[in-house]
Nucleic acid binder design. Structure first.
Lengths: 149, 149
DNA sequence: CGAATACGTAACAGAATCTGTTACAAATAT
DNA sequence: ATATTTGTAACAGATTCTGTTACGTATTCG
């Protein structure tokens, strides 16, 4: 699993915490421990998914496009992995040419994993960005004065 | 996800089908559509996990170390990914130095995903190699005369 | 005993992917 | 106008994955 999901969740939790105030990619990158361009690149996905809205220019930045309670981690996951090869796909190598055992094997494995994947998706769908933000705020260590800094 | 899980399942289903007859890495590789060394490399994991037993020399090959009904896909998955970075770990980048939001974020995400991962593991544990082999045999297309060839 | 077979393992190349970084155009506030 | 900030392309370095070659070791068979 790449870092995209973690970084995207970090970003959105931060935006949920800053309640409407636009946040720049530089601030977000500093908090998430990455590079501003990485944030902006990922932000493109979140924007395409309708999760955030950005504004250019001085004083610009990004805000949530809808309430944090209405953004599930499944939304985040899907947006973060958009355009990427399906993380849950069963990668097999060459399907056998003699018979299509390869294809049958792939279908069988996908069937086996189907329920588990559905459960995982449901679990992600049950958690909102607001919940994550609140849990982060609650567990924020004392020696870090300003939240999400 | 790498191809290891799919190839390992393929191998074990094949071995389950050949009931005690040792199968060479060359035959397995041909069926799985990969290279014999890839099979032998992966077989090292399966052997370490106690799922198969190999014998060198002429007429050698690999057999299941215990009945196929007693090998779950969770066993296969664990063995195939042994020594690899945890597929389900939430990769984050640098934990922030100012405060440990990075660590808290990681723990929070791991907590969120914990149930989903447990469900997925349970689902894999509920399916045996024998079941996979039987489903493959049942779904084997007609124009492929000899099973698993 | 010697040859053929087959595993075990190291080593390496090519491809793909991921992240970080630089660069620069476009948009916007002051 | 100027400073700020996003949007995006392009590229380098690191890592990973698969396929492949090579070679030592074990085992069977004649």
């Amino acid at each position: 699993m790449n870092t995209r999901f973690a970084v995207a969740t970090h970003i959105l939790a931060y935006l949920a915490h800053s309640k409407g105030q636009p946040v720049s990619s530089e601030v977000l990158a500093s908090s998430a421990g990455t590079h501003p361009v990485v944030v902006r690149r990922l932000m493109g996905n979140l924007r395409d998914a309708g999760l955030v809205q950005s504004q250019r220019g001085a004083g610009g930045g990004t805000v949530l496009a809808r309430p944090a309670a209405e953004i599930s981690l499944l939304d985040v996951f899907r947006a973060a992995q958009e355009g990427e090869p399906d993380l849950f796909s069963v990668n097999s190598t060459n399907p056998n040419e003699n018979c299509d055992l390869g294809r049958v094997m792939q279908e069988t494995l996908e069937g086996v994993l189907g329920n588990a994947i559905a459960a995982m998706r449901a679990s992600l769908a049950a958690v909102s960005v607001e919940q994550v933000m609140q849990e982060l705020a609650a567990r924020r260590p004392n020696h870090c004065p300003k939240a999400f800094e």
